[in-house]
Design a protein around this nucleic acid. Structure first.
Lengths: 338, 338
DNA sequence: TTGAAAGCGCTAACAC
DNA sequence: GTGTTAGCGCTTTCAA
């Protein structure tokens, strides 16, 4: 049924180890036999069993990706870039999705390791899974997972700077009472973005009321609910710093329902710059993350570390910070713009 | 470093085959030793090497998913449902993305098979890869891949019915000159949707001008470009049947730019019902695909076929058709609605 | 109930 | 240059 090196060795009246050598371009076979082997291998439709190869070489040419979801286009695009880069390096990927569930994430970490992946890329949710990841026997690179003194490398957008940029923009537009509608409490990205925001406020000697901070989830529904709550409890609030674009979309939805025109009476700024944010009907002001670069850089870093490990070179955890970029569209100080 | 069954056999002064039996709940070990083995296995942090297990059992507990992209929320959601269902069955997934590139898709088919997957789920682009998939030695279930007499099962929304529903709606709204802005020529989904559309026209004894059909790609940019071309060449055109929601989003973008109000002066209907279509700023009329169900049904069907194969039962290719559903929002005959 | 041994498909060290 | 052999971690058949 499936052709193995033994089959082609048998056919050629050779020993199967010679076939292996020929196929892998290892020294120890005459050019003649090599050609013969390669040809008949093709003829017979031979495909190496990478599983068997992995068992002896301890290299599976496989990495694991742990994502909270891929519906959010941010993660969708990053994941796409990771897969693309992995493929270029002759790697395949296991994709695991936790749906923002801690236990599921932990299951995924175990599952992926049983599959003997050569490395792991993780956008992890909880501290517990961070700990688990630190104990992994293969290199790990995280996305937005830099807290305390991490034992593995991490890549992320400079969230503090991003929050700072957003605050500067909001302040320059004249907004003075900004509601912060963020994701879950344990989101390190959110924490850093808030820190940047508060820093800007401090620099301008402005005060920010703690009660203007609301935490929820990174989805449209949550954005909608949070906006509703915010405007009920703070009717004089004049703007929103959303945890990400998806939350901002929910905010926009609530404003539309209430007949509040974003950008004129009320400012909304998101984070990520997902592709839907630039639609003419949306025109969301946001802080852009270089999604494609993030995916590529994470993956390259992981492969560096995998290579180092194979060559016995020690890996030191790195932290790579990428530049955020303010994208001003129509949901903030539109009166000045147009 | 990594604990193997030999390690725990050594520690317990047992033969490693007994350990294997104990761990796999196979008969031939006393309850006493089984308990002992299981306990110490846990203590020592033993994790079975599924690669090695796969080599002997020929079961890798892994399936391959072939998708054209995951940025389009349609595929993102279907993929999520597939992964979820696979995980419930104790399976992991290799995700391959072709970016709508035929050669890449073929590479992916080869790569995935080398990894010895137990089955394949494919939304394939070209006929060539369809042929390749037919030769696979493992069960294959396709999404929207039913043409000629397929050798593998396929699940899809009833696209012909979907196209028919869309046409009926457009006709009932009073639109009489509908531009069809579809995806690539080789898209079987598009073909079926058009057939349904034409069928409805015929039933109403209406004629449809062939020059109103434009083919492009399944993305926003293409929708924008196609809309531009359509309105230039057919200024009297009163509506658009878009190949999918993403194309429709591009159409909406062009209309907005031209100051044409969708739903009032001009009708637009999409296909898929991606989550962004319901945003208050978009309110796209569309034909819904049951994305989540699709993912689950595909995966269950695949596991059925995998099980059958393992038990020596022959699989017969099935074709499962799911019901489309018209979702009327604001981009069609709004004057009547509101 | 337990142990011994073969073998999954492959790589690599060692002979010849 | 080629053949022989061991072994990766595991399951499974056959003896004991």
């Amino acid at each position: 049924m499936k052709v193995t090196i033994k089959d082609i060795a048998h056919k050629l009246d050779l020993n199967f180890s010679s076939v292996s050598r020929a196929l892998n371009n290892k020294p120890g076979v005459s050019e003649e036999t090599r050609k013969l082997v390669v040809e008949t291998a093709k003829e017979m439709g031979y495909r190496p069993n990478v599983i068997a190869r992995g068992l002896v070489s301890n290299v599976t040419k496989t990495i694991g990706i742990l994502m909270p979801d891929i519906i959010n286009p941010l993660f969708g695009e990053i994941t796409t870039a990771i897969i693309e880069t992995a493929n270029e390096n002759d790697y395949d990927v296991f994709l695991c999705i936790s749906n923002w569930n801690n236990e599921k994430e932990i299951d995924n970490i175990h599952a992926i390791q049983q599959k003997q992946v050569d490395g792991i890329i993780a956008k992890s949710v909880s501290d517990e899974s961070g700990l688990l990841l630190e104990q992994a026997s293969v290199p790990v690179v995280g996305y937005e997972t830099w807290m305390k003194n991490n034992k593995f490398s991490s890549v992320s957008t400079d969230n503090e700077k991003g929050g700072h940029i957003a605050a500067e923009h909001l302040i320059s537009c004249g907004y003075r009472k900004t509601g912060i509608l963020h994701g879950p409490i344990n989101s390190s990205a959110g924490l850093h973005r808030r820190n940047g925001f508060y820093k800007a406020y401090k620099e301008h000697s402005l005060k920010h009321d703690k009660s203007l901070l609301y935490l929820g989830d990174y989805n449209i529904k949550s954005g909608y609910a949070l906006a509703k709550k915010l405007l009920k409890e703070h009717p004089d609030c004049d703007s929103v710093l959303a945890g990400n674009d998806v939350i901002a979309l929910g905010v926009l939805q609530y404003l539309e329902e209430q007949g509040i025109k974003p950008g004129e009476e009320f400012g909304v700024i998101g984070f990520d710059n997902i592709s839907f944010s630039h639609l003419p009907q949306i025109q969301l002001t946001t802080v852009k993350q270089p999604k494609y670069s993030i995916g590529r850089i994470i993956t390259k870093l992981l492969f560096d570390e995998i290579k180092n490990k194979q060559e016995g070179i020690q890996n030191f955890p790195q932290r790579i910070l990428l530049e955020p970029e303010l994208i001003v569209r129509k949901t903030t100080c539109n009166q000045i713009q147009s």
